[in-house]
Nucleic acid binder design. Structure first.
Length: 161
DNA sequence: GCCAACGTTGGC
DNA sequence: GCCAACGTTGGC
């Protein structure tokens, strides 16, 4: 199968739940716990190995893009849906027909200069970014290549080749 | 802590 | 299949 062109994404995470530092310590993680169908469809169907990710801290002080990551494995079933003890347990999911999926990502770099929401909003070139739109709750979002590069520039991180 | 925006559920 | 009620997200 032909390798799809690289795409760019933004993943939201609450730093109290799974912050970028924790992610860096782990070295890799399956992006689990997403329980929204639109985000699920992106994870399962659109996000592929080699794609790049802006790591966004939501519900945070400050709310900011704090790092970048690379997709290291295409999606497979999110195990937490099968675990009755997990907060992400889904009693309607079965192993024969899993409902929820997650890709694996690895950290590339923490932003030397995290780009907080005010900075994002203050940059005219980012005005169309989904995360800045009113009511944009989607926890996994597509990002334009130009927006990705701009955020890297603002965060003083080298755009990965 | 408030509340607007959005997604899901379930009665009908 | 509609839509009101409810739950969640997440900025502020």
């Amino acid at each position: 199968m032909a390798k799809p062109p690289r795409r760019y994404w933004l993943f939201k995470s609450e730093p109290d739940v799974y912050g970028f530092a924790h992610f860096q310590k782990d070295g890799r993680t399956q992006w689990t716990g997403v329980r929204n169908y639109q985000a699920r469809n992106l994870l399962r169907d659109e996000i592929h190995t080699g794609d790049l990710v802006l790591y966004y801290h939501s519900n945070a002080e400050p709310t900011a893009i704090v790092g970048i990551a690379r997709v290291s494995k295409d999606a497979w079933a999110d195990e937490t849906q099968f675990d009755p003890k997990s907060p992400y347990y889904d009693p309607k999911a079965t192993r024969e027909a899993p409902r929820w999926f997650g890709v694996e990502i690895v950290p590339i770099a923490a932003m030397p200069r995290p780009v907080d929401r005010d900075a994002l909003k203050g940059e005219p070139a980012l005005a169309d970014m989904m995360v800045l739109q009113r009511g944009a709750r989607l926890s996994v979002q597509p990002v334009d290549a130009a927006h990705f590069r701009k955020v890297c520039e603002m965060g003083m991180v080298t755009v990965p080749s």
